[in-house]
Nucleic acid binder design. Sequence first.
RNA 1: GUGGGUAUAGCUUAGUUGGUUAAAGCGCCAGAUUGUGGCUCUGGAGAGCAUGGGUUCAACUCCCAUUACUCACCCCA
Length: 436
Amino acid sequence: MALITKKPRGTEDVLPRDSYRWQFLEKLFRDEARAFGYREMRTPVFEHTNLFERGVGDTTDIVQKEMYTFLTKGGDSITLRPEGTAGAARAFLEHGLHNDPLPIKAYYLTSCYRYEKPQAGRLREFHQFGMECYGTQDPAADAELITAAANIFDRLGLKNISLEINSIGCPTCRAEYHKALTAYFAQYKDELCKDCQERFSRNPMRLLDCKVPHDHEIAQGAPTVLDYLCDECSAHFEGVKHYLDANGVAYTVNPTIVRGLDYYTKTVFEFLSGDIGAQSAVCAGGRYDGLIEELGGNPMPALGFAAGIERLLLTLEAQGVEIPLPASCDIYIASMGEDAHQKASALCNSLRKAGLYAEFDVVGRGLKAQMKYANKIGARFSIVLGDNEIEEGKAKLKNMLTGEQSDVPLEAEAFINAFTQIKLNDEFKGLEEKNN
RNA sequence: GUGGGUAUAGCUUAGUUGGUUAAAGCGCCAGAUUGUGGCUCUGGAGAGCAUGGGUUCAACUCCCAUUACUCACCCCA
């Protein structure tokens, strides 16, 4: 096959036969968001580059080596969003949402772009569902947000999703901790692996979760953040845990959780799936009290999370969670002869206007092939239209499951009435059988 | 950016120690006495074996390179 080009690396097509899985997830997200008072927010796919440099942090890998950045014809530097929080925060500021009753709760479902090397659960174009909450520093809010995510995984029927939480403190206590950490690792600096040598200067907290055995051993003896939290941060973290307990959300405290984006403060958390390979974080987030100020606004506490839709889909598949199939064709109208074809077309249109999913032959197939097709698309009912039926003004409606047939009139309105009646009876019977 | 694996029809694969027109299942299309699907049967379309070199009388089978896909590291949803 001489295709002029293939899809760019790290992108995925969602085919017609699979889109219902996405739609199922999206609906569940929206429903859950609504239950927690979150409303949808949509922001541009691209933003001015400096938004991400400031918001995400210009020392992060995302900004340093993963952004899709380009110059416009006008000479502006534009970047495809690598994540959702910065754009949401920008919109929050730009539209003065802090004047609305607090807290402001917003969610988004968007694509994100990162120039990375693809692997299992990692794409260059991927999709996130995220929730952002502005204007509260109460630990109840942290727990509420985490609970929303937990509820989603619960409703999806996912097993083995573990929640790990940590607090990385405020800038004040984190500075203290960094000092202690640096002092500790300085003793072993020459023994650390090459990556860790780098981390030592860039982000010492990263030294904690190195996978190299020797480094890991050294890290075991390192001071933990939780011992360095100031009174306020410590009390806040305790509060979060209590509210999670109250909500019945299970978690483990993991003091080595570090987030890769600069804006996080205090609470950080990850939901991990053991079924999808090395990229196991299916959802992650935390508090970012400094972000709004960093972007030029008045100080405003905030928190949020993002869940990777592709990763969730992978987890669902790995665990064999069944996603309900979309409703299939209500009725297929087979026809033979020019008059009947036209009648089928018109009847179909009336049915569609009435909200039904109806099909007829638009390929020019023979009757038998039409019936086969009706079967393949899972039509629940079918009728055959020929000269006889047109003449008599009625046809046989066939239940494709049971093979039962009954007469129905061909006049549109009467047909729809008769059909909906039969369809309802059929559904009722189905329910009864299910219950017995 | 670094490292490992893979590359045969739309999909899943077979292809023996290199040897004639590359095989199967699924899917697709069409038939199996006249106007009715699912099961079965028959037939058909569809790849020239990722690409480019090389070795050989002969390569899908061996060698090299490239590309793509994939997994892992870094990092992250």
